[in-house]
């Protein structure tokens, strides 16, 4: 059994808006081992990003973590004050975002932004900080890194900017990196390069990763385990290989069926009927029931998490067969 670095138990984050309570993250639990890559998959608005921000303690107003616990390296993050939490962010847990053009500050040089990130946690000489920044930039694949420290973000391409952001996130060798769709805005060829690089870096530094994506195909090539989110909850989780071979939750099965690669060329693409429900007015019971062809009267109640070996799902009437679940 490998060492668990991050353990999330029953995490629930709500947004208290004027029109009501938005249950963005509802009772989410998972564990992450050292160096492990977990894919967090779901449609837009399923609560993936809010889960990521909750882990960092950076949920924007009027949102709040209402219950649950986040334990990072035996430290309960949910019980820390903001000032204490800040000392963990960037050092033990960091995050990269979808749009590299928006994340870097356009009016500060790359070197300055990296020095600020280093200075947030350590006192080093300017020289040492520069060496560290250069080292990381080369590691993420930026040529002539030392010279590029004086460059501004607009002098880099989108892919290069994302590499810079990744280098900043790696500056303190955090135990966990949350990657919020970092390759979605990039070209497919660049995407593949960055995925490969992230995998190597994670293995090298022992950094665990939560890779947030709506693209099942991208995540499955990277992550060793998957968690599928729907309407703020994890509806199914398990090792990537067995989960993809034998999905149990109808939503996971629907997601896989709607991948273009799963459809015979020339036939219409399959899709899951209906749209994601508004998190403001979730139907009672299973949130997927209105879109589910297998829904029965039973689905008016909330299904509990069924755990079977390393797999878990929330469904009364799962697809596939129990005996095929374990690999």
């Amino acid at each position: 059994m490998t060492e668990t670095v991050l353990s999330v138990k029953n995490l629930t984050t709500h947004f208290f808006t004027r029109s009501g309570v938005v249950k963005a993250v509802d009772n989410v639990s998972f564990d992450l081992a050292k160096g492990e890559i977990m894919g967090l998959v779901g449609e837009s608005g399923s609560g993936k990003t809010v889960t990521g921000f909750s882990l960092l303690g950076l949920v924007d107003e009027p949102g709040r973590i209402v219950s649950g616990s986040i334990t990072l390296k035996d430290k309960a993050l949910t019980s820390l004050s903001n000032a204490e939490l800040r000392r963990w962010r960037g050092r033990e847990i960091s995050m990269i975002f979808q749009d590299p053009i928006a994340t870097l500050n356009p009016v500060l040089t790359i070197g300055r932004q990296m020095r600020l990130a280093i200075a947030a946690h350590e006192r080093t000489s300017a020289r040492a900080a520069e060496d560290r920044a250069t080292d990381l930039l080369s590691k993420v694949g930026i040529p002539s890194a030392r010279a590029r420290l004086d460059a501004y973000p607009h002098e880099f391409s989108g892919g290069m900017r994302q590499r810079v952001a990744i280098a900043i996130a790696l500056l303190h060798r955090p135990s966990v990196i949350i990657a919020d769709e970092p390759t979605t805005a990039l070209d497919v060829s660049i995407q593949a390069q960055i995925l490969q690089q992230m995998r190597v870096l994670a293995a090298e530094t022992g950094t665990a990763m939560i890779w947030i994506s709506h693209d099942l195909a991208v995540v499955s090539s990277l992550a060793s385990k998957l968690a599928v989110m729907y309407a703020g909850r994890i509806v199914e989780q398990g090792p990537t290989a067995t989960l993809l071979r034998n999905p149990r939750h109808p939503y996971t099965a629907g997601l896989m069926n709607s991948l273009p690669a799963m459809t015979k060329p020339g036939t219409p693409l399959k899709q899951i009927p209906g749209t994601t429900p508004s998190l403001l007015s979730l139907p009672p019971g299973c949130p997927f029931a209105p879109r589910c062809q297998r829904a029965t009267a039973q689905c008016q109640h909330d299904p509990e998490l069924t755990i079977h070996g390393d797999r878990g799902w929330r469904c009364f009437d799962p697809v596939g067969h129990m005996d095929e679940v374990s690999s």
Partner: peptide
């Protein structure tokens, strides 16, 4: 996102 990213990096 610039500010969010700076916060995620632990800047005060």
């Amino acid at each position: 996102d610039t500010i969010k990213f700076a916060r995620a990096a632990g800047l005060s």
